Structure formats: structure tokens, C-alpha cells
Amino acid sequence: MKRNTLRAWFQVHRWSSLVCTLFLLLLCVTGLPLIFWHEIAHLTGGEPELPAASANATPVSVDTLVSRALRARPGDVPLFVSWEEDEPRVTYVTTGPRPDASNDEMHVSTFDALTGVAIPAPQFNEGIMWVFYRLHTDLYAGLPGLLFMGLMGMLLVLAVVSGVVLYAPYMRKLPFGVLRGGQRRLAWLDWHNLTGIVTLAWLSVVGLTGVINTLEQPLVGLWQQRHVAQVLQEPPGVAAPRRPAASLQAAIEAAHARHPDAIPSWVGFPGAGYSGSQHYGVFLRGDTPLTARLVTPVFAHATTGKLAGSVTQPVWMQALLLSQPLHFGDYAGLPLKILWALLDLVAIVVLVSGLVLFVRRGSRAQIEARIDARMEMAR
């Protein structure tokens, strides 16, 4: 590699890393507890406890559960119904002041599907874990914050690529994992190189999936316009009904009958952002660790109950659905989460060592001398 090319890559690595480092430190610190969100909720009593039910009990109609949630909050409209993946008896009914309510305005009522009893459970948008989540995703800035964090993720990927380009000539004549003594800056450089190359694949995966996740709102909007609108064929400018007339239970059963091998995962009400302004969106999932993340939407008219059809997910929506759990290592249970957490801690070392190297970078002449030394080592 020519000297000028190596210098150019050095500048790319330095400035792409420097611009995003502080935000990446925030992401690593806040992401660590988010990896274990489910486990923390279990240890702190945040998971709903189910009452005893008879062996021959039949599930209560979803319409009944929605009505009970709205009676408790008469000014709200229904937004979503969802089921706990590990325990289908747990049913969540999400309501809000209007169909396009933000996450902070939503309220979740938790029910036992067999008894219809309301289960005391904390709100998902309250507490320290919600603070971590908002800081991790959008810095409490909504869509602009999401897109900004996506830009930081792109800079992370650029820093990883440029770091690999620099690593090859630097380590060509040194044994892998060498940690030399002597100057403090040299020791920090060795730690930076070692931890960086160890977390190379993980940083790339987390960075790319993080960028994809920040594009959720634009991607869902594009999906609505290009795919869902063609199936629903709704007249423009029609407001979503506050209380849909058609039975949601019947819509769920009809959707399940169309895809008997799939499991109802969640339902979006009209106007909530996933099923137009006049339709229910019943989203069904598979029963394997991979297919459980891929959902098939089936739409039913919220007034007549008639099925409007389903939509085949485009590749970019499948990538979005798969990247969300992969970002937090939520695919293979606790062992993968522990691995994700350990790599997160190592990534913090990468970022801190990079900051130390920048602070102790020395003069421009010293930097160019070090680049020249790397060139000599690579020959």
C-alpha cells in the first residue's frame, strides 16, 4: 500500500472514530442493561404473574379484553393487541389518546387470556429501562434523533473498515495479540488493536443492524405506500374509527385460518401506523427462533370484518424484522446475551483506548513518522 493511501486511511479512521466515539460509548453503556431487559424485569418483579386457571378453561374473546381496557381508560382508542411469546396467556392491550399516539402517550393493560382478569404490570414506557431505551435509540429527539444515531452507526462501520485496512500492514510482522511494554502510548495502541480486531465481526453486526433499526419509521412508511396501500385500496382522507365495529376476534380467527401454520403475534388497529385507516392488521409469526421474527400481515376491514388480503414482506422489511432482535442478541436465549454483553464491554475498551490515543497523538510530524514506520514494517 502506498504511503499517501495509508495516510488517507489513517485520517478516515481517526475522524470517523472520533466523531462517533462519545455517542458509541453512550450506546454501549445503555445497551448493556437493554440486552437483559427481559431478565431484569423477571428479577425485579416486572413480569406479570398469571392467576390459576382450570384445565378446561377457554380463552376469553379478544373483543372482551379490548372493551375492558377501554372501560378503564374511556378517553383512549385501541392501538395494538399483542401476546407474550413465551406465555400466550399474557395478552397486552395498548391504548392511547388518538390513533397516532407516540410511545410516551401509550398505556398498556395486561390480561390473562384464559380468565380475562387484569394483571398488575408496570408500563413499558416508565422506569429506568425506558430511559436507557430512549437514550439508546433516539436521545429523546424522535425521528431526528433516530436518524442521527443511524449516522453514528454508519461512521462506526466506516471506522471498522478503515481500522481493518490499517491493521493489516501494522500487524504483518507482529504476532497476533502482542502486548508490548515500554511507552504507555504503545501499550494503549496494542490494546486498541487487539480489542478492535477481536470485536470486528460483532461491531460490524451491531453497527449495521443499529443503522437498519433507526430507519424503521421511513421503512414502515415506504412499506405502507408501496405494498399495503395496494391491498387495502382505501379512499384518501378517511379518518380512522375510534371504535371499530367489526369483531377483532373474528378477524384474528380468519387470518389464522388463512395461515394455519402461523401464530398470531400482534394486531394493529386502524390508524396506528401498520394497517391503514380502515383495517385491522393481524400479524402472524412462525414457531421457530428464526421464523418467529418474520411476520405475515393479514388485513381485515374494521367495519365489515371482510378480509382484504395479505402482503408478502419485501426484503428490506425482512431485514428490519431480523435486525431488531439481532442487535440485542435476542436469538439464542441467555448464552448469546451473555456473549453480547461481554463483547459490549470489550467494545468499551476499544472506544476508551481510541480516545486515549487521540489525546496522546503527538505532533503531525510524529504521526507521519509512525505511519512511515508502519510502511517499513509492511515491506
Rank of each mutant, 00 (worst) to 15 (best):
H192R: 09
R285V: 06
A57K: 12
W266Q: 10
V29L: 15
T304M: 06
S275P: 08
V205M: 14
V211L: 14
I371P: 00
Q225V: 06
Y170P: 00
G362Y: 10
Q11T: 10
Y92C: 02
P97F: 05
L345K: 00
L139Q: 03
P88F: 12
D76A: 12
D138V: 01
V117C: 05
D63G: 03
M375C: 14
S102A: 15
D100H: 09
F10P: 00
C20Y: 03
I367K: 13
L339K: 01
A239S: 13
R180D: 07
I212E: 00
A159R: 02
R226E: 15
V228N: 04
D63N: 10
D287Y: 07
T137Y: 13
L320P: 01
A239L: 12
L156H: 07
T214V: 07
G31K: 03
N125T: 07
E105N: 08
P48Q: 05
V206M: 14
A365N: 11
E87V: 11
P78D: 08
S277C: 01
V359G: 03
W37E: 12
E368M: 10
G46L: 14
I212T: 11
V19H: 10
Y331C: 02
W9Y: 12
S353G: 08
M149K: 01
W188E: 06
V231K: 00
S54M: 05
V93A: 09
P97K: 11
D63R: 01
A251K: 06
L194H: 06
L65T: 03
N193T: 10
A53Y: 11
E47I: 05
L151K: 04
Y167A: 13
S67A: 15
L189D: 00
P236L: 08
Y167S: 07
M129A: 03
W316E: 11
E126M: 10
A378E: 13
A347Y: 04
G177L: 09
V131C: 04
I367Q: 15
T296C: 05
G354C: 00
Y331S: 04
R68Q: 14
L294E: 03
L203Y: 04
Y140Q: 01
T5A: 13
A300E: 06
M171G: 07
T115E: 01
A378W: 12
Q278Y: 02
P175I: 07
T94A: 11
Y331W: 13
W130Y: 15
A369C: 04
F148W: 13
L25D: 01
N125W: 04
M152D: 04
L326T: 10
I348C: 13
F80M: 09
W316P: 01
L345D: 00
A347D: 09
R379E: 14
W9T: 02
I371G: 03
I128H: 02
E85T: 12
